[in-house]
Design a protein around this nucleic acid. Structure first.
Length: 560
RNA sequence: UCGGGGAUCGUCUAAUGGCAGGACAGGGGACUUUGAAUCCUCUAAUCAUGGUUCGAAUCCAUGUCCCCGAGCCA
């Protein structure tokens, strides 16, 4: 497994860990974990959590566990367990031999529940779900005790054992902690510890028909694993007193829970429920659609774990609710790909160029640099001939101000090729430019003029006879608005879906990419970064646009 | 309304009583065989009002606004 490098972070979490290390609370130990529920795919918000947990363990020479919080068999599936495992591994967070499941602790949890019953701190409650809700009170009014709250210990023990034995129907009884029905923190108003669920569990099968609630299982799972710092999101802040209560009642190792603000991104949805809806309604092709913020989607899109690590370090961590600009993610993706992606030439919107003074059947193989940022990437040869493709965008019959590219009578450089000059324009019956007639200067092979004359721009090109046809999938943000929930009265987030989030179009690429396997990442020079899609075949190569290059010309144009 | 959190450039995040800093975004420039990358540069913030202090983003008081919480979900 590739260990990712993390740079030392300093934030409110390291402050807390530092103080623990000074006062000896955990004897200098740092042990974190990532505790996903296998009810969906991981997204970039989880990447923040994973990097945080794994990063803290790395930074302090501690340990990191992966644990599935699989306490609800009605929502969880093996497919998700497999996908999550793959995603965490891909990110590079190494759990070594510490892959656990809350279900590993079902027996221990049961025994501890019995202990609480014996201590008079838990009881079997016969109230229905609705009655429990009625007894709970409201945010401003205290709750009322359940009529079963003061059952004798022996009766509780007997009832609980029969719950486990399967004597009762789903929902007919629960085991509840006996805390304080008047607590202002609703989590302390006798929370449910066990519910009856005659459901098959992906790991324990039919062994259990009572399942611990998350609140009952989570803190003890951390305790069992010797977790020192339970890093989680803000919404669990007022569950912390409950977890601490359980731990104290049981007299077991007490981790420190630390809450941080989850990641939100502009133009992006992070809710698993809504992502599932996009999948189920066929709005995207699946959890790994390259437009999805899922780790599998980002991976298919061409984003690297290194880029995500860089991103999570840049956004930092705090307790403010915040929304990160998608442009920052794109920046991290570009800076990583710029260092590592091989350069090739591809033409998305071809315009034919014929070099009138170039011999009919001649082919010239020219040296091209694979990656100017990385000399060790070497060079390759690209074929050059009389008929070429260039980008429509790189020619204007009537150039706007500040336009540097090809126009009638103007000379430009073909990247790693020759200087060419446009001498004539061929149009169809509608007056549309369909072909350019150009001359090339044989003295400028490789792209330099011996007489030292300069050109205003360098454009990319392909030898028409050698270009490989391919499919480009051009992705754009899934939503039109920064906040997908920003809708007028009566509308909903689905109204903000970007109808043009995917544009599929034929394109041409240079022959050097012919055998690139899925996952190969390239920069199509002057255009964007692309990644070979798993749908790619030798007959039809498919390229996903990861992210476009920054485009200064587009800015100039938009201001004109 | 009760409890728990939070408020610093457009965005994210530092400053832990002592020059409000960095990154992204935006503007300007240099360089350029990618209008990329790189480099330089500029714009731009302490929720409000009082108080304590030589000195307050930081401490105190009052207020305002935002988020989370009434699943047998996590």
């Amino acid at each position: 497994m590739p260990n990712i490098e993390t740079t030392a972070q300093s934030n409110f979490i390291t402050d807390i860990i530092d103080s623990h290390n000074q006062n000896g609370r955990f004897a200098g130990r740092v042990h974190t974990r990532f505790p996903p529920e296998p009810n969906g795919y991981l997204h970039i918000g989880h990447a923040k959590s994973i990097m945080l947990n794994y990063g803290m363990a790395q930074q302090y020479g501690g340990k990191f566990n992966l644990r599935f919080d699989d306490t609800n068999p009605t929502k969880e599936e093996q497919e998700y367990i497999d996908a999550i495992t793959e995603d965490v591994r891909w990110l590079g967070a190494d759990w070594e031999d510490r892959l656990f499941h809350a279900s590993d602790y079902f027996q221990q949890l049961y025994d501890w529940a019995v202990q609480l019953i014996k201590q008079g701190q838990a009881y079997v409650c016969d109230l229905s779900a609705e009655e429990v809700r009625e007894h709970r009170g409201t945010l401003t009014e205290p709750g009322r005790p359940s009529p079963y709250r003061d059952r004798p210990v022996e009766e509780n023990l007997d009832l609980f054992e029969r719950m486990k034995a399967g004597d009762y129907a789903d929902g007919s009884r629960t085991l509840r902690a006996r805390i304080d029905m008047a607590a202002p923190n609703l989590n302390l108003r006798d929370p449910v510890m066990y519910r009856i669920l005659h459901a098959e569990h992906p790991r324990t099968g039919g062994a259990w028909c009572i399942y611990p609630t998350y609140d009952w299982a989570h803190g003890q799972s951390d305790s069992i694993e010797g977790i020192t710092h339970s890093i989680c999101t803000l919404e669990f802040e007022d569950h912390r007193p409950l977890y601490d209560w359980y731990i104290q009642a049981l007299g077991i190792h007490a981790p420190q829970q630390i809450e941080f603000a989850r990641l939100a991104l502009t133009y992006t949805l992070m809710s698993k429920r809504r992502l599932l809806k996009l999948v189920n309604e066929g709005i995207v092709s699946g959890w790994n659609d390259p437009r999805m913020p899922t780790l599998s989607g980002l991976r298919r899109r061409g984003v690297t774990p290194q880029a995500l690590r860089d991103f999570t370090e840049r956004i930092g961590v705090a307790k403010n609710n915040s929304v990160v600009d998608l442009a920052l993610l794109e920046y991290s993706i570009r800076q990583d790909l710029n260092q590592h992606a091989l350069r090739v030439m591809g033409v998305l919107d071809p315009l034919k160029v014929t070099l009138v003074n170039y011999p009919e059947d001649q082919v010239d193989w020219l040296d091209a640099v694979n990656n100017p940022e990385d000399p060790t990437a070497g060079t390759r040869q690209v074929p050059f001939s009389r008929e070429l493709w260039i980008e429509q965008d790189d020619f204007r019959e009537v150039p706007p101000p500040k336009y540097f590219r090809l126009t009638p009578g103007r000379e430009v450089r073909l990247r790693y090729g020759y200087y060419i000059k446009c001498v004539d324009v061929v149009k169809d019956a509608d007056g549309k430019v369909v072909e350019l007639l150009c001359t090339y200067d044989p003295e400028t092979r490789g792209g330099n003029a011996p007489d030292g004359r300069k050109v205003k721009s360098t454009i990319h090109w392909l030898s028409a006879a050698h270009a490989l046809p391919a499919e480009a999938r051009l992705y754009d943000r899934l939503f039109l608005t920064e906040n997908p929930d920003d809708v007028p009265e009566g509308g909903n987030w689905m109204d903000n879906l970007n109808p043009h989030s995917l544009e599929v179009r034929p394109c041409y690429v240079e022959p050097s990419v012919a055998d690139a396997p899925p996952g190969s990442r390239y920069q199509f020079e002057r255009l964007a970064y692309f990644c070979v899609d798993p749908d790619s075949t030798p007959d039809k190569r498919v390229f996903n646009r990861t992210v476009a290059l920054k485009d200064e010309w587009a800015k100039v144009q938009s201001r004109q």
